[in-house]
Design a protein around this nucleic acid. Structure first.
Lengths: 203, 203
DNA sequence: CCACTAAGGGAACTGTGGTTTCGTTAGTGC
DNA sequence: GCACTAACGAAACCACAGTTCCCTTAGTGG
């Protein structure tokens, strides 16, 4: 998977970068299905043999693309107020999903994850990292006594994203700013009510 | 799409039923990609020409399968308590997603929706119906003054499902009963806080 | 019960996504 | 700067999903 180890010098890395970029472009244009590795090779100005040898399948290529995406991360907000931080997070996710390129890319990799275990593994790792990046703002809110002790920070962050992805993938309703703000507000309200503490989870 | 209109007599309907059942089986076994219409035809004991003629593509077949699934609906709970009703809904969804056959089927049709506009249309219609079926329990809670006036009932129901689908499709964490109960509790808490009323949505 | 035609099906055909072969290029280590 | 070999790439090759052709079956209407 993480290719380019044995011979880190110029070419290998260059080819990988070109192919991953081309794969992103093709994924955005055609979607996960209808993705032709020969087409990716052409875009990357690389022999198709190379693509098949190094990545093998569409899913394998997407998995590598995801590990690459996981490396570049966005900074999180830190406004000193839980609801503001959550809203910043929600709006960041919302903008990402609405962006023509990013949105298509995310849909594609999520689809890939349902088709291939390696892609699934890469996707889950990706989100584990992204969520972990934002948990500190929940933990700070707990420390400030804005939220109950023992609040599951990761679960609060997940609660912010969930409605956005649900709309994107399942119901098809627009993922607009109002939706993002509502998601943030809902997560904050639920967290305040102690829904994300281990003890009172089911009530 | 909705095939079988012009000649409703025996054979047409029989073939459709056999093919849709076979499609479901194949979808569960192989997933949306790797679905071979010839294989579906074989399972349904039907000529592959027929499948290609009537449905054309994998996505078209899935779209028809979805409209078929939309017709059989499950009864909703009515316990007289919002949180109980929401929990019943959450657990129903949870059981569906965890069930090996149903879960795989839902993943497959959601994937299909990201690949084909007709499948997307069918999926959105399907969920619109499912959600509308459950809105009455929120409306009753509003009438009982358990929730603020003007609460967006559909949004509350969506809020219950969202975390379950998010886990299933995005983060890959287990979709267990505790998750379902937490989702119901969170939706109820947010609704109580007035997050789903038009006026105070963004605060 | 018969003529009519919508729908189904077997088999041959084709185009494209993926594989194999083998010669070429370019980082690596001394 | 030279020998070594990992990695690349062009072209021929292959298999099979999807299409076409044309004949057969079976609901429908009188």
């Amino acid at each position: 998977m993480a290719v380019g180890a044995t011979r880190p010098g110029g070419r290998t890395a260059r080819v990988r970068a070109a192919v991953l970029r081309a794969a992103g472009d093709a994924l955005v244009e055609h979607g996960f299905d209808r993705l032709d590795l020969a087409d990716v090779a052409r875009r990357a100005e690389v022999g198709k043999t190379t693509v098949y040898r190094r990545w093998g399948t569409v899913a394998g290529l997407v998995a590598d693309l995801l590990t690459d995406m996981a490396e570049q991360s966005l900074p999180r907000a830190d406004t000193g107020s839980l609801i503001e931080d959550l809203r910043a997070n929600a709006r960041l996710v919302q903008r990402t999903l609405v962006d023509p390129r990013q949105g298509a890319l995310f849909r594609a990799v999520i689809v890939a994850a349902t088709c291939d275990p390696r892609a699934a593994e890469a996707l889950h790792r990706f989100y584990a990292v992204r969520i972990a990046e934002w948990t500190p703002c929940v933990e700070q809110a707990v420390r400030r006594a804005e939220l109950p002790q023992g609040t599951d920070a990761a679960e609060v962050i997940r609660a912010v994203s969930a409605p956005l992805y649900y709309r994107l993938l399942v119901t098809g309703e627009p993922v607009d700013e109002a939706t993002a703000d509502r998601a943030a507000a809902a997560a904050a309200a639920a967290a305040h009510a102690g829904v994300y503490t281990p003890t009172s989870g089911s009530n």
